[in-house]
C-alpha cells in the first residue's frame, strides 16, 4: 500500500515556516511597507550616527547654524531649520531614532509579558487564571494614557529606557487575552494530550508545544503593538509626559514646535510624516503577516 502513499511526497515540499514566508512575500502592500520601514530605519540611524559613531550627514542636531532666509527647506538644510537655526533634518532623524527604539522596546516587552501571562493563565486554568486575568482586567479599566503618563513621569530620570519599560508594563493586556484564548483551545488538542501522556512537564508543554503553535497570533499582535506604541509615545510626548529634554522624539518635536505651525509649517509636517510612515508600514506588515499565518482568510485568486 505504500506505493500509493509515497506519490504525494515526491512533489516539492515546504515546511510551515516556508509556507508562511511564501504567502507573506506575495502580499504586495507588506513588501512595500517593509522597504519603506527599512529605508526609514537605515536613514535615521546612519545619517547622524548613533552615540559615538558618526554618520554621513555633516550637521548635528545640537549646533545652531546660520539661518538661511526664514529657515524653509533648502539644499543645505533639506528639512529646513528651526527657530534658532538648528538643522531640522538632523533633529528629525534623532527623534525618529528615539521613537523607533521606544516602539521596538515597548513591542518586545509587552509581547513577552503578554505571552507569558496569557499562556500561564490559559494552560493552568483555575486560580492561576483567575489571578492573572483579574490583574489584566484591572489594567484594562484604568485609562491607558493616564496610567502611562503617571508611570512615565516616575521613570523620567532613566531617560527613554525608563519610559520604554513603563509603556511596556502597561500595554500587554490585549495580547495576554488573545494568547490565553489561543492556548485554551490548543491545550485541548490531541498532541498536547499525547505529550502529557508521555510525562512531559507543564513548562515544556507550554513553551515547546503550545506557544510555537500560537506564534501567528503573537507575531501579528506584536507588530500591531509596535505601531500602537509609536502613537502612544507620540501622544505622551506631545502632552509633555513622555520623552523629556534634552532627549527628543517625534512627538516631542511636534509638541516643541506646535506654535510654529502657521509660520513654519515644515517644523510640523516632517515629524508628522515620519510618524505616519512608520505607523502605516508597521501596520501593513502586520496585515501581511496575518494573511500569511492564516491562509483560511485568503481571498481565492482564481
Amino acid at each position: 500500500m505504500t506505493d500509493a502513499e509515497t506519490v504525494a511526497i515526491e512533489e516539492k515540499s515546504y515546511s510551515q515556516g516556508q509556507l508562511v514566508r511564501r504567502r507573506f512575500f506575495r502580499h504586495k502592500g507588506a513588501i512595500v511597507a517593509m522597504v519603506v520601514l527599512a529605508v526609514v530605519v537605515l536613514v535615521a540611524f546612519t545619517s547622524i550616527g548613533i552615540g559615538p559613531i558618526p554618520g554621513w550627514w555633516d550637521k548635528n542636531p545640537f549646533s545652531q547654524y546660520e539661518k538661511i532666509g526664514t529657515g524653509a527647506p533648502t539644499w543645505a538644510h533639506p528639512f529646513g531649520q528651526d527657530t534658532i537655526g538648528k538643522d531640522y533634518f538632523a533633529l528629525v532623524m534623532l527623534g525618529t531614532q528615539k521613537s523607533i527604539i521606544i516602539a521596538l522596546g515597548v513591542g518586545l516587552i509587552s509581547t513577552l509579558i503578554g505571552t507569558v501571562i496569557g499562556a500561564f493563565a490559559g494552560y493552568y486554568r483555575g486560580w492561576v487564571e483567575s489571578a492573572l486575568m483579574r490583574l489584566t482586567d484591572l489594567l484594562i479599566v484604568i485609562p491607558l494614557l493616564v496610567l502611562a503618563a503617571v508611570l512615565g513621569k516616575i521613570a523620567s530620570p532613566w531617560g527613554i529606557w525608563g519610559l520604554t519599560l513603563m509603556l511596556g508594563l502597561v500595554t500587554w493586556t490585549g495580547l495576554a487575552r488573545l494568547v490565553r484564548g489561543e492556548v485554551l483551545s490548543l491545550r485541548e488538542r490531541d498532541f498536547v494530550v499525547a505529550a502529557t501522556a508521555v510525562g512531559t512537564g507543564a513548562r515544556r508543554i507550554i513553551f515547546k508545544h503550545v506557544l510555537p503553535n500560537a506564534v501567528g497570533t503573537i507575531i501579528v499582535s506584536a507588530t500591531l503593538a509596535i505601531s500602537a506604541a509609536i502613537l502612544l509615545e507620540t501622544s505622551l510626548s506631545f502632552l509633555g509626559f513622555g520623552v523629556q529634554p534634552p532627549d527628543t522624539s517625534l512627538g516631542r518635536l511636534i509638541s516643541d514646535y506646535q506654535t510654529a505651525f502657521t509660520t513654519r509649517p515644515w517644523l510640523f509636517w516632517w515629524p508628522g510624516l515620519m510618524i505616519l510612515a512608520i505607523a502605516l508600514s508597521v501596520n501593513f506588515i502586520g496585515d501581511g503577516l496575518r494573511d500569511a499565518f492564516d491562509p483560511r482568510q485568503n481571498r481565492t485568486k482564481a
Binding site: D190, G199, N213
Partner: peptide, 30 residues
C-alpha cells in the same frame, strides 16, 4: 512505560515538530 496512539494523527502530532523531533520527544522528556 505507557504509550499512546490517538484517533486523528493530524491532531495528535505537533504540527511545528518535524517527524524526527516528534518521535524523539519522549526521549528528550525523560
Amino acid at each position: 512505560r505507557i504509550g499512546v496512539v490517538f484517533q486523528d494523527p493530524a491532531a495528535s502530532i505537533n504540527p511545528r515538530f518535524p517527524v524526527g523531533e516528534a518521535v524523539a520527544e519522549p526521549l528528550v522528556v525523560h
